[in-house]
Design a protein around this nucleic acid. Structure first.
Length: 856
RNA sequence: GCCCGGAUGGCGGAAUUGGUAGACGCAACGGACUCAAAAUCCGUCGCCCUCUAAAGGCGUGUGGGUUCGAGUCCCUCUCCGGGCACCA
């Protein structure tokens, strides 16, 4: 089975064992197994034209070691891979070359696959998935329909980022520093019809359930901050002009209500016009023009310089009846709370800055005990100048004031979130089409009488005075595939290239079956055909990655996203490894979809990723981020050719802690490569025969046996804790000892090869076979350690005098303090420090240290 | 500005609950083997003082503190990295 090479010829060995694994389907995960399961998942890649960079195999090697280790531990391991293959680069390539994005995507996938296979990862290739495959995105569309039916998807005309250069809309997260993340082009605001998912309905659960997951703290905190929960109150201020009603504000500090000296509404607030008095009209108009002319970049970047204008109107403070002037200023955002605030300049930095600039009064209402303070003050204290509430601690006052306002019907306790609903459409070709058609109101009502799968409230959109109704395709009509198009260029008016495909777009639609006929053809017979226009938006790239971890459980299922048995048996990943750049978006969106599927009873658990780990970034040799322009990029292909993939895998793990950012050192790989060669030489002679020192006829040194058992323990523990760098150190220590030992028991050598196998699987397979074992090291159960083998009766005790290390002593394990002190009387290195001194104190930690504190 | 993470030899890093700082590897230096080289093996390798000895002193970004004892705990500051950024 093995190769016959005499020296460590990795170029022959590695492809040999890769074909062996492939032919034997060695890594196939069994559905319906009685073994315990272990599901270890990588964030699947976007198959870019550039191919793999060194960061991919870092995370993938970590999960591969875990997968191989867990298999040896007797688990039925699911370790899959697939392609997140919709995306803007493929579309831009299509625009440029006129070729279908699918063909470019498939080429890229083939290249990625070749590279990944050369790394020897133990993926179950029978479960490979591709988000652009209609058999896959049929279920992405299906999940969208479930959201739609539950009222979690709606259409709204809203200001979105429009990039004239890319001729498409971008999401907030695709904008970096006011420019498009792809290409770095300028962007502007435009109002366009968009699909939006109601993720805010899940804000509370998305926040609360973070407590139960095993994730890096920093990632949890980022999600918490992104969701941004804050408790406060909505309070109504009666307007002085009673005809206008009241102005509703949100505050987290109702206890500072007596310090409210003015109010602010956002420039986009619906009451702005009504509040503006005749005298102020021109000033407000001028301000409004200036504020709307600011790009969002300016509005945030120039945040330090607050500006605003007086509306001319006043409101009445509900706690003390005072007249409060209402200002219009763009430091208040329409998108959060009610778009209006009460300003308390004494206790809010922003309000303070504004009040100083416009000479508005500042009234202190919170004072800490005793100390003098500088305003604005936002610390603890008791209320002052606050009528009946004066003297209360502010949290208590917050409760009471909120309750009193609620009793009067002018306020209520509320919770606000920074999280916004998720803008879920793109005006592009290369994405999942929405399984939605737009019909007239009367046709929608007919559909509603025929079908059970419509949302409680119709999703509509008004355009040029006509209201269109969103009608879902029946589940059975899925997938809705992309039509071929003449041009991949966006239409340029805010619709995708699909808007130009009249035959696909304008249709006769069968209300019951979802069948379609181009409207250019005659209306089909029957009463269930209506005139419809397809949705031209497509879904964002996030859609396919929101649920892919579920498809791996049962990837060929044509009747469900996965069978209930598979969903129950495999559940969710036991370990999920990927970059920290996905800390918020992907991981939040996927959690949202998973919770919806949980509510639908599709999945049996409410969180998708119970244990998450972020691998760090590998920097270039120069300590800078790898990039083509810096010329510091290391390609896995090059390293595999020069040192082999086992060396690459080992070195990626040996560089440092998995989560750390660490520079690539081209010479460092020599070190791990030498280690592998050393292992080879310990197993085989220069002629390729079994090394004669591997023999059971003479005993191996007891020290070696002891070290083996220590190594088994440490390597196992380190793998469980993803501390691969120290596991490798330990194996190097063992290999050094192996080299010095005159004889090695065959069982010792075998056990060591098994420890090495998850890290350097090709070499381990080869040596395993060359030592006469068959058929594969993958079948051998993980070696067990025997703690008795490394338990010792003697320990080294460190001796300190006054906290300074003065020597050490090997003593019997359970020795008493008095016995140790007796021994020290004759310890040459120690006695000079003790002679003639009084022992003031002795600290004795058995087995570790004895510290003697002397007088004077 | 706010939140989080980090700083240990020439380099990457190791160090359990506070208990011998520098494991393992890279680089460097000396030696063995060799006609020679590569490979391999043996040895040295934080800084200072010193005879290249013995012994000692200093040392984990800065300054302080707690402790018999601090890389590890507390406070201060500096620098580096990441996230958020008018969210009331």
């Amino acid at each position: 089975m093995a190769t016959k090479c005499k020296d460590y010829n990795f170029q022959e060995i590695e492809p040999h064992w890769q074909s062996f694994w492939e032919e034997n389907h060695s890594f196939r995960a069994e559905n319906g197994s009685t073994k315990p399961k272990y599901y270890v998942l990588d964030m699947f890649p976007y198959p870019s034209g550039a191919g793999l960079h060194i960061g991919h195999p870092e995370g993938y090697t970590a999960t591969d070691i875990m997968a191989r280790y867990k298999r040896a531990r007797g688990f039925n391991v699911l370790h899959p891979i697939g392609w997140d293959a919709f995306g803007l680069p493929a579309e831009q390539h299509a625009v440029k070359t006129g070729t279908h994005p699918a063909s470019n995507t498939q080429n890229n996938i083939a290249n990625f696959k070749r590279q990944i296979k050369a790394l020897g990862f133990s993926y179950d290739w029978d479960r490979e998935i591709d988000t652009t495959d209609p058999k896959y995105f049929r279920w992405t569309q299906w999940i969208f329909l479930q959201l739609f039916k539950r009222g979690l998807a709606y259409v709204d005309e809203r200001p979105v980022w429009w990039c004239p250069e890319l001729r498409t809309v971008l999401a907030n997260e695709e904008i970096v520093d006011g420019k498009s993340e792809v290409g770095g082009f300028p962007v502007e605001r435009r109002n366009l019809r968009q699909w939006v998912l109601r993720i805010t309905a899940y804000a509370e659960r998305l926040l609360a359930d973070l407590k139960g997951v095993d994730w890096p703290d920093s990632t949890k905190r980022m999600q918490e901050a992104w969701i941004g929960r804050s408790e406060g109150a909505e309070i109504q201020f009666q307007l002085e002009n009673a005809a206008l009603g009241s102005l509703k504000i949100f505050t987290t500090r109702p206890d500072t209500l007596f310090g409210c000296t003015y109010m602010v509404v956002a420039p986009e607030h619906p009451l702005v016009d009504a509040l503006t008095t005749t005298e102020q009209k021109s000033a407000v108009a001028a301000y409004h023009k200036m504020a709307s002319g600011k790009s969002d970049l300016e509005r945030t970047d120039l945040a330090k310089d607050k500006s605003g204008v007086f509306s001319g109107s006043f409101a009445i403070n509900p706690v003390n009846g005072q007249r409060v002037p209402i200002w219009i200023a763009d430091y208040v955002l329409m998108g959060y709370g009610t778009g209006a605030i009460m300003a308390v300049p004494a206790h809010d930095e922003r309000d303070h800055e504004f009040a100083v600039r416009y000479a508005l009064p500042i009234v202190q209402v919170i004072a800490p005990a005793g100390e003098a303070i500088k305003l604005p003050y936002s610390g603890d204290g008791k209320l002052v100048h606050s009528g009946a509430y004066t003297g209360l601690d502010w949290p208590e006052a917050k409760r009471r004031i909120t309750a009193d306002l609620a009793a009067r019907g002018v306020g209520k306790a509320t919770i606000n979130y920074k999280l916004r609903d998720w803008l879920f459409s793109r005006q592009r070709y290369w994405g999942e089409p929405f399984p939605i058609v737009w019909v007239s109101e009367s046709d929608y009502r007919r559909a509603a009488s025929l079908r059970q799968d419509l949302p409680a409230q119709a999703v509509t959109f008004a355009e040029n005075g006509v209201t269109h109704f969103a009608l879902p395709l029946p589940d059975a009509a899925l997938p809705l595939v992309l039509p071929d198009v003449q041009s991949y260029l966006p239409s340029g008016n805010g619709e995708s290239p699909l808007a130009n495909e009249t035959a696909w777009l304008e249709i006769w639609f069968n209300l019951e079956t979802g069948a379609a006929v181009p409207s250019s053809q005659p209306l089909p017979a029957g009463t269930v055909w209506v005139r419809a226009r397809r949705e031209t938006n497509t879904m964002p790239q996030w859609a396919g990655s929101c649920w892919y971890y579920l498809r791996f459980l049962d990837p060929r299922n044509s009747t469900a996203i996965a069978s209930p048995e598979a969903l129950r048996y495999w559940g969710v990943p036991d370990l999920y490894v990927g970059g920290a750049e996905h800390a918020v978006l992907h991981l939040l969106y996927a959690r949202f979809w998973h919770k919806v599927l949980f509510d639908l009873g599709v999945v049996p658990q409410s969180e998708p990723f119970t244990k998450l780990f972020h691998q760090g970034i590998i920097l270039g040799e120069d300590g800078e981020k790898m990039s083509k322009s810096r010329g510091n990029v290391v390609s896995p292909d090059t390293i595999i050719a020069s040192h082999g993939t086992d060396s690459l895998r080992l070195y990626l793990m040996f560089l440092g802690p998995l989560e750390a950012m660490k520079p690539w050192n081209p010479r460092g790989i020599e070190g791990v490569h030498r280690f592998l060669q050393k292992v080879w030489r310990e197993c085989l002679t220069a002629e390729g025969a079994v090394n004669p020192k591997i023999t059971a006829s003479l005993p191996e040194p007891a020290e070696l046996t002891k070290l083996l058992h220590e190594t088994i323990k440490k390597v196992g523990e380190d793998i469980e804790n993803l501390r691969f760098n120290t596991a490798i150190s330990q194996m190097m220590i063992f290999a050094n000892a192996l080299q010095k030992a005159p004889q090695v028991d065959p069982s010792t050598m075998r056990a060591f090869l098994q420890l090495l196998a998850p890290f350097a699987p090709h070499l381990a397979e080869e040596l395993w076979a060359r030592l006469g074992e068959a058929p594969s090291i993958l079948r051998a159960p993980w070696p067990a350690f025997d703690a008795a083998k490394f338990a010792t009766s003697e320990v080294k005790l460190v001796i300190q005098i006054n906290g300074r290390h003065r020597g050490d002593l090997v003593v019997a394990k359970g020795l008493s303090q008095d016995a140790v002190l007796e021994l020290l009387k004759n310890h040459a290195k120690v006695t000079p420090y003790l002679d003639g001194k009084m022992m003031k104190r002795v600290i004795y930690v058995p087995g570790k240290i004895i510290n003697i504190v002397t007088e004077g």
